[in-house]
Design a protein around this nucleic acid. Structure first.
Length: 289
DNA sequence: CTCCAGGTCCAGA
DNA sequence: TCTGGACATGGA
């Protein structure tokens, strides 16, 4: 087995936060090394100062795609400089300087977030792991490492029965995933075309899928299609915005959306991810239980 | 046992 | 537009 390596430089970069902040579900961390999958590449990555050391078992690695995935070319400070200067965002920015949005694959991202609804992140990871093991293509893995597989294609999942999907523990989301797989594989939904589409159009287009509402559509537009104005509002962000910016009043969905769009612009999506990671790592207060 | 999770859908105000 | 409840599943 041949392992090929490459060093990518990017500063600032916070690899640990980037891979654990809930945007991607397939990375596991051992010591200071993360192992995961990008398309059909088995990937091992670690950070040393301003560089990422990336290794893969792929016979002819697509390094351009890998660089793109990790978004090492982005001028991150230019992005975070545009954040509003309030104390919460300033603190999040300080604590997680180097946190980046990845550029994920459209189908994997869409399918993953269809599975994410009303589920905790560890559960989502569990389901996705089972889905890849059952229906993905096994990848070459160095000795001593867990077997990993590529994410199953839309075409393959379209050929799988809902009952077989349910066996993986995804519950009522099975028909949603199934329908998305059919529409993507038969061309009724051309994911690639969303790259060219303006945000509002792309936003509406994704929501024609059953099981895809505003939150999931925004996640997919932000994490796969790099629409920077997408601002996913989940339970955590809703709580955070209510406490931090509405002094615990309970704003309506419409109010939240309007506030987020104007206040965090132009990099609302990035601001959202900093806030999300920040509140989720708070020791106590906004956290339930 | 009860409550909740990176929500969405549907029905009824 | 907004609200309440249902929806599968698993962990706390």
């Amino acid at each position: 087995m041949v392992i090929q390596s490459q060093k990518l430089s990017a500063s600032p970069y916070d690899l640990a936060s980037t891979l654990t902040c809930g945007q991607a579900f397939r990375w596991t961390r051992w010591d200071h090394t993360s192992v995961g999958v990008i398309d059909d590449h088995w990937i091992q990555v670690s950070q040393q100062g301003p560089s990422l050391h990336v290794s893969t078992t792929h016979s002819s690695p697509n390094w351009k795609r890998i660089e793109d995935y990790f978004q090492v070319r982005l001028d991150l400070d230019n992005v975070t400089r545009s954040f509003p200067m309030d104390s919460h965002l300033r603190e999040a920015k300080r604590a997680y300087r180097g946190l980046r949005l990845l550029k994920q694959s459209p189908w994997e991202c869409l399918a993953s977030f269809i599975l994410s609804s009303n589920k905790q992140i560890p559960h989502i990871q569990q389901i996705i792991t089972r889905l890849t093991q059952r229906f993905g293509t096994p990848l070459e893995v160095p000795p001593g490492h867990e077997p990993l597989a590529s994410f199953p294609t839309a075409a393959h999942l379209a050929s799988v029965s809902e009952a077989d999907l349910r066996k993986l523990g995804m519950g009522y989301r099975a028909p949603f995933l199934s329908e998305a797989a059919r529409r993507v594989s038969d061309g009724r939904l051309v994911l690639q075309s969303l790259f060219e589409m303006p945000y509002p159009e792309a936003f509406a287009s994704l929501q024609t899928l059953p099981g895809v509402g505003p939150k999931i559509a925004n996640c997919v537009l932000l994490f796969a299609f790099q629409k920077q104005e997408a601002f996913p509002i989940d339970v955590w962000i809703k709580r955070a915005l209510s406490t931090l910016y509405f002094s615990d009043a309970s704003p309506s969905p419409k109010q939240l959306e309007a506030f987020a769009r104007s206040y965090f612009n132009p990099y609302a999506g990035y601001a959202q991810q900093y806030l999300f990671h920040y509140v989720r790592n708070q020791p106590r207060s906004p956290q339930p239980h």
